[in-house]
C-alpha cells in the first residue's frame, strides 16, 4: 500500500471526490494556481479548471455564505480557510445560519469547511488556533480532526458525502511530519467513530489531532515504568463516539483527557461530563484534564513549549492518576 503524508492524503481525497461527483467544487484563498498556502490543493486547478477550483477574495463570510447558497442548489462545496483562526470571521454564517438550516426549513447544508489548525510551528496567537470548543455548543454542525494520513483521506471523503455541514480541522504540525499507508481504492472513515490507537489497562488517555502522538509517546514512557495507557483518538468531535469512550473507561477506570486547545470551556469538560454521568461507577480516580494553558497561543518556542501540553506533563499527570 502506498505510504503518503497527511497533507497528500487530504489532497487525494479532494481529487477523488471531485472525480467521483461533479457537484463537488472547492473555494478559498490562493487555492488555484498557487495551490493553497500549504499546497493542499496543488494541481487541482490544472485538473478541474477554475470553474471548480475558485480563487476567492479575502472574504470568509462570502466564501462560506456563497458555499451555503450553492449547496442549496445541490452543489457540494468544500471551502478552504487559509488558517483555521479565520473561521471566526465566518462564525455567524456557520453557527447561526448553516447549522440551523435543516432544523428550520428541512434544507440541509452539505458543505465542508476545512483548514489548518493547531500550534507547535511558531504560528503565534493568530495562526495556531484549535477552534473546536467554539462550535461544540452548536447543534447542527459536525466536526472532525484526523491524526493519521489514512483518516485524513477517509474522513474528508466522508465529510464531503455528508448531508450536513462538516468542519474539518487538519493539524498543520502533522501535514508533512506524518506518513502512513493510504489505499488508492475508495474508502471512508465514518464520522462519529473513535479509534483505539494503543490498548492499555491502567488508564485511558482520550485525545485527538496532534496530541495523539504526544499521548503515544507518553504511553511508551509510561510502559517502561510499568503503566499501561490506552490511547483513544476521537477523530470525530461532533458527534462524539460515546461507546468507545465509555468502553475504555469501563476497562481502565482512570481517565486523562488531553487536548491542545486551552483548558477552560474546552471539549475536555464535555467529555468529563459524559463520563461522569454515564461511567461514574467505573471510576477509581477523579477525571483529569490536561490542555494548553489558559492564555493566547504564544510565539517564542520557549513560550509555546511551556504553553502546550507536552509529553512530560502527560506522563506526570498519568502517574498521579494511577497512584490516586
Amino acid at each position: 500500500m502506498p505510504v503518503v503524508t497527511y497533507l497528500e492524503a487530504i489532497r487525494q481525497a479532494l481529487f477523488d471526490e471531485m472525480a467521483r461527483d461533479e457537484r463537488v467544487f472547492v473555494m478559498g484563498e490562493d487555492i488555484g494556481a498557487y495551490g493553497g498556502a500549504f499546497k493542499v490543493t496543488e494541481g487541482l486547478i490544472e485538473a478541474y479548471g477554475d470553474k471548480r477550483v475558485i480563487d476567492a477574495p479575502i472574504s470568509e463570510q462570502a466564501i462560506v455564505g456563497s458555499a451555503i447558497g450553492a449547496s442549496y442548489m445541490g452543489m457540494r462545496p468544500v471551502c478552504e480557510i487559509q488558517f483555521i483562526d479565520f473561521i471566526a470571521c465566518c462564525f455567524d454564517m456557520l453557527t447561526n445560519f448553516a447549522a440551523t438550516s435543516r432544523y428550520r426549513n428541512g434544507v440541509g447544508v452539505p458543505i465542508v469547511v476545512r483548514g489548518p489548525c493547531g500550534g507547535g510551528v511558531g504560528g503565534g496567537p493568530f495562526h495556531s488556533l484549535n477552534p473546536e470548543a467554539f462550535f461544540l455548543n452548536t447543534p447542527g454542525l459536525k466536526m472532525v480532526e484526523p491524526s493519521t494520513a489514512y483518516d485524513a483521506k477517509g474522513l474528508l471523503k466522508a465529510a464531503i458525502r455528508d448531508d450536513d455541514p462538516v468542519l474539518y480541522f487538519e493539524h498543520k504540525f502533522l501535514y508533512r511530519r506524518i506518513k502512513d499507508e493510504v489505499p488508492d481504492d475508495d474508502y471512508i472513515v465514518p464520522i462519529g467513530k473513535a479509534a483505539v490507537r494503543r490498548e492499555g489497562t491502567d488508564l485511558s488517555i482520550i485525545t485527538f489531532g496532534a496530541m495523539v502522538y504526544t499521548a503515544l509517546e507518553a504511553a511508551g514512557t509510561l510502559a517502561e515504568q510499568g503503566v499501561e495507557a490506552e490511547v483513544i483518538d476521537l477523530r470525530s468531535l461532533a458527534p462524539l463516539d460515546r461507546d468507545t469512550i465509555l468502553d475504555s473507561v469501563a476497562k481502565t477506570s482512570r481517565v486523562l483527557l488531553l487536548h491542545e486547545a486551552t483548558l477552560t470551556g474546552g471539549i475536555g469538560g464535555e467529555l468529563a461530563a459524559i463520563i461522569g454521568e454515564h461511567a461514574f461507577g467505573y471510576l477509581d480516580a477523579p477525571i483529569m484534564r490536561l490542555a494548553s494553558l489558559d492564555a493566547p497561543v504564544p510565539y517564542a518556542p520557549s513560550l509555546e513549549t511551556a504553553f502546550l501540553p507536552g509529553v512530560t506533563r502527560v506522563v506526570e499527570a498519568a502517574k498521579k492518576l494511577v497512584q490516586y
Binding site: A62, V64, G69, A70, Y72, M73, G74, M93
Partner: peptide, 16 residues
C-alpha cells in the same frame, strides 16, 4: 448574510 448566500445561489445554479 443573505447577500453572499444569494450570490452563491446564482453561482450554484449557473454551475448546474
Amino acid at each position: 448574510d443573505s447577500i453572499p448566500v444569494a450570490a452563491g445561489i446564482g453561482m450554484g445554479a449557473r454551475m448546474r
